[in-house]
Simulated assay, not measured.
Amino acid sequence: MTATELIIDGLTLTAGSHRLVRDVTLTAHPGEVIGLVGPNGSGKSSLLRAVYRVLRPVEGRVSLDGADAQSLTVRQLARTVAAVVQESGADFDLSVREVVAMGRTPHKRLLAGDTAEDLALIEEALSTAGVSGLADRPFDRLSGGERQRVLIARALTQQPALLVLDEPTNHLDIRHQLDVLGALHRLPATVLVALHDLNLAAYYCDRLYVLSNGEVIASGPPAEVLTPRLLADVYGVGSEVVIHPRTGAPHVTFLPGPGQLQT
């Protein structure tokens, strides 16, 4: 697994007459963990879909180590980019181990069996995602959180140079949120991840891009980006931001305003 450089340059995406993303520019250096944050509908998922080529830009381009992502073959793209989306839309009639093994497909010839290296990578991914104990269970009988961890394990088995994740901590309890994000931060790959939890983003991401109404309105290290003024502008709520004394990362506390307090 060798990290790639991701450059998004002047990207605009539309759906019919509706603009999803406008003139977005983003750089992820090899090995960085880059976080996308912003409210629902801000364009995070659309931007990720352009990176793993589900959406085609109407303007701008996505480059991987200088190559236009649109010019890559399906096999080249699969060997470079792995994606974990919010809803897989798949109900595999397979065991967990078989689903995770699918991640090796881009690296094998048609109908080729698993090599010793494949098997070792599968077991390592199962362990990293915390699903070794589920390996022989049917995938379609798992809970939402268990499925999410299995799909993350499948992506890790793919050994991508760029790992793209859309809300990977959805459905996960706090222990597994920390385990998964910690594992992503240790990967030699470049990681682009959309997150709702600003405190997790602040701790695990090297840099953040803040999206609002399809545009990037701020970017930089979490301590520079996550300010009460920006959070008020983007999320419409008051907040306090302090440096956590133990983690050294910004910690955001949202302040309920009039009409928001629960009695």
Rank of each mutant, 00 (worst) to 15 (best):
D68G: 11
Q70L: 15
T73Y: 00
T73L: 15
R75L: 05
R75A: 11
A78K: 02
V81K: 12
A82W: 02
A83Q: 00
V84R: 03
V84L: 05
V84H: 04
E87I: 13
E87C: 13
S88L: 06
G89S: 08
G89W: 10
A90D: 15
D91L: 10
F92V: 07
F92Y: 05
F92S: 08
D93P: 15
S95N: 12
V96M: 07
V99L: 09
V100Q: 08
A101L: 12
R104C: 10
R104W: 13
R104N: 14
P106E: 07
K108I: 11
R109N: 15
R109E: 12
L110I: 15
L111H: 08
L111W: 04
G113H: 14
G113S: 06
D114N: 04
T115Y: 14
E117C: 05
D118T: 01
D118I: 10
L119H: 12
A120W: 03
L121I: 06
I122R: 12
E124C: 06
A125I: 00
A125P: 01
A125W: 00
S127T: 12
T128E: 10
A129W: 00
G130W: 00
V131P: 02
V131A: 08
V131F: 14
S132Y: 11
G133E: 13
G133T: 11
G133V: 15
G133S: 11
L134T: 02
P138H: 08
F139P: 01
D140F: 05
D140A: 14
R141L: 15
L142P: 08
L142Q: 08
S143E: 06
S143G: 09
G144T: 10
G145C: 04
E146K: 04
E146G: 10
E146S: 03
R147F: 01
I152S: 02
A153N: 03
R154L: 11
A155Q: 01
A155S: 09
L156N: 00
